[in-house]
Amino acid sequence: MRAPIGNFDQATPAPDCLDELTRPVADAVRHWHGCVPADQILYVETDPQLADTAVFVEHYGQDLLETSANCVVVAGRRGGGTRLAACLVLSTTRVDVNGVVRRQLDARKASFAPMEVATGETGMEYGGITPIGLPDAWPLLVDSRVVDLPYVLVGSGRRRGKLLVPGKALAELPGAVVLEGLGV
């Protein structure tokens, strides 16, 4: 199948390649529900050696610069408690951690979660964290510009491979909150 964005050799419906995904991502695809059918989520194989954004878009297509999103784990703290959340923003922007995220989590302080916390809590590889298959209790903060795209390139849970997901499907994920100005 031809990928709707990028120059990938093969795009496979995610339900047909669950073995290529980490367990939490595969489970989320297996139990998928929403307005977009699971077979419209596509898996593409990528070379982790080409992960740098400039090299990645040169190899896989310039259109990916405007249609890629990063999913990062943040920690909001208030008093003695910490609340984890994920943020999804276009790769051409950065997460407004100290403004939008801090207010949304009702935290006194917010920061990016340490790598070992992000990977340990999600069951995903660093550099491959995706909004699909996150822990149920987490909020997923999604920049509104991501939702507006026909397809978005996101991680697959592993460093090797990406998912192409219709933007509107990301707004329906568990815990999703669509926000203006999350990515600045």
Rank of each mutant, 00 (worst) to 15 (best):
M1C: 09
G6I: 06
N7G: 13
N7C: 13
F8W: 09
F8T: 04
A11G: 10
T12Q: 06
T12L: 14
P13V: 10
A14M: 04
A14Q: 06
L18G: 08
L18M: 08
E20G: 00
A28E: 08
V29E: 07
R30Y: 08
G34L: 12
V36G: 07
A38W: 09
Q40Y: 06
L42E: 06
E45W: 04
Q49H: 14
Q62E: 15
Q62W: 10
Q62H: 14
S68W: 04
S68H: 07
C71G: 11
V73I: 15
R77T: 13
G79N: 10
G80R: 12
G81R: 15
A85K: 04
L88G: 01
T92Q: 12
T92D: 00
R94A: 08
V95I: 15
D106Y: 00
S111W: 02
F112K: 04
A113E: 02
V117Q: 12
G120Y: 11
G120A: 11
E121F: 03
T122V: 08
E125K: 06
E125R: 06
E125H: 09
E125V: 12
G127R: 10
P131F: 03
P135C: 11
A137G: 15
A137Q: 15
W138V: 08
P139Q: 05
S144K: 13
D148S: 15
D148E: 15
P150C: 02
V154M: 05
G161C: 04
K162D: 05
L163G: 01
L163C: 02
L164P: 01
L170F: 03
A176D: 04
A176G: 02
L179D: 03
